[in-house]
């Protein structure tokens, strides 16, 4: 359980210690990619809690979403349309939905520790 948090901390310290900076014009893509990654992560946690977790789906979704989001904003940049807003919207909505589901699952878990099996969406 603590392993993912440890991974996050390790990643943060690594990133901060290496002091990598990306050029301003790519910062947009990175922020979209971060959003996609967070969405996938939250989705993965939710699936884990619902016991529907599939590692292949999770890992492929992680990379695929990042690439798709970044390429969408890239395309938007070149077309002059703010296509990254589509990604922000989709990921944002899903992020909140997933977090809401996780919250309900956890509330159920803690409120009725014996009825764990009955939990569904």
């Amino acid at each position: 359980m603590w392993l993912p948090v440890l991974g996050l901390l390790i990643g943060l310290t690594l990133g901060l210690l290496t002091d990598i900076q990306i050029p301003d014009q790519y910062a947009n893509y990175l922020s979209i990619a971060v959003l996609a990654a967070l969405d996938t992560l939250i989705g993965g946690i939710r699936a884990n809690l619902q016991n529907t977790y599939d590692e292949k789906v999770f890992v492929s979704g992680f990379f695929f979403n990042i690439i798709l989001a970044a390429s969408l904003s890239f395309l938007g940049d070149h077309l002059g349309v703010d296509l990254y807003l589509a990604a922000v919207f989709a990921f944002g909505v899903r992020l909140f939905q997933n977090i809401a589901v996780i919250r309900r699952i956890l509330l159920n878990k803690w409120s009725f520790p014996q009825k764990n099996k009955k939990i569904d969406e």
Binding site: M1, L3, P4, V5, L6, G7, L8, L9, I10, G11, L12, T13, L14, G15, L16, D19, I20, Q21, I22, D24, A27, L30, S31, A33, V34, A37, L38, T40, L41, G44, I45, N48, Y53, E55, F58, V59, F62
Partner: peptide
């Protein structure tokens, strides 16, 4: 095994966040 992949993903997210933080 699933924890390992999640850990890997969280690590990547951490790095991305840190880079983003550094850049902004």
């Amino acid at each position: 095994k699933s924890y390992i992949s999640i850990t890997f993903v969280t690590m990547l997210i951490g790095i991305m966040l840190a880079v983003q933080f550094n850049s902004t």
